[in-house]
Design a protein around this nucleic acid. Structure first.
Length: 259
DNA sequence: AACCAGGGAGCGT
DNA sequence: ACGCTCCATGGT
């Protein structure tokens, strides 16, 4: 589901094949091109990365990896639900939320899918109803955030025009949103290329790859990420994250290593 | 049976 | 500014 539409994307020879539901003859594809960031020149982004061995390996291993330009509300809400949860469980919570409170949408094969629930819908739900989606203590965070937006305390559209630091501070006014989740929304929804979310995986990678045999505190790590990875630091973060999770992370798990 | 998970809030110092 | 604990739930 992308922006309320059903889409099937398939990896094909020489490109992506997209199947959509449409009534128009001349389909306008800008919404999908925008979502997939197909206007971004990936090789020039990769060339802006620092040329150290780790980044080169990450780029080689994760060839073709791209960021998506997600919708701010869906992205914000999803990441509020992400704290101290495994990715598969976050997916489960979001799926439950959509099935119960989203809008049903038909696929070409007459399957029923569900859009991500609107801000009003979430704000109108009771905390108990939200907890039924297994989000636990994150329920009041999500509801509180939806209510703040509804009251006009924070305007998600106005964030687009702000500079990075101001936009980050604005998002961090929401309950359950700290530096990491704010940076995720700034990068994945608003396209702030300099935003660099530091989660446990990236933290482990930075320490292991760039500060071996040292013990830098969180602040030092943040300052390093802000200066080292260049104008497309957010893309670099995604390469490191994916490289760490799909390559290095699994090796360590097999290798009986403590967290 | 403990321990952990794409963190953050609310304490204490 | 830092460090610590708790938070709810499912999986290992």
């Amino acid at each position: 589901m992308i922006r309320g539409r059903w889409v099937r994307l398939a990896d094909g020879r020489g490109g992506i094949t997209a199947t959509v539901m449409t009534s128009a003859n001349a389909e306008d594809w800008t919404w999908l091109i925008d979502y997939l960031e197909l206007n971004v020149n990936l090789s020039s982004v990769q060339q802006s990365f620092p040329a150290d061995e780790h980044m080169k390996r990450a780029v080689t291993e994760c060839r073709g990896l791209r960021l998506l330009k997600q919708e701010p509300w869906e992205c914000l809400a999803s990441f509020i639900l992400s704290s101290t949860k495994q990715i598969v469980q976050i997916q489960q919570i979001v799926a439950l939320l959509c099935e119960r409170f989203g809008q049903p949408v038909r696929s070409p094969r007459a399957e029923t899918w569900f859009s991500f629930p609107s801000i009003d819908r979430i704000a109108a739900l009771s905390e108990a109803e939200l907890r039924c989606c297994k989000m636990g203590f994150r329920a009041p965070y999500l509801k509180g955030t939806a209510e703040m937006i509804l009251r006009g305390e924070v305007n998600l559209e106005s964030v687009r025009t702000m500079d990075l630091a101001t936009a980050r501070a604005e998002l961090m006014r929401f309950p359950g949103v700290g530096r990491k989740i704010a940076d995720c929304v700034l990068l994945f929804a608003y396209g702030f290329q300099q935003a660099f979310p530091v989660d446990v995986w990236v933290l482990k990678a930075i320490k292991q790859l760039y500060f071996p045999r040292r013990r830098p505190n969180g602040k030092k790590i943040l300052r390093f990420t802000e200066s080292y990875f260049g104008p497309n630091a957010g893309y670099a973060q995604q390469y490191i994250f994916h490289y760490m999770r799909t390559r290095i992370g699994r090796v360590e798990r097999r290798g009986n290593e403590k967290n």
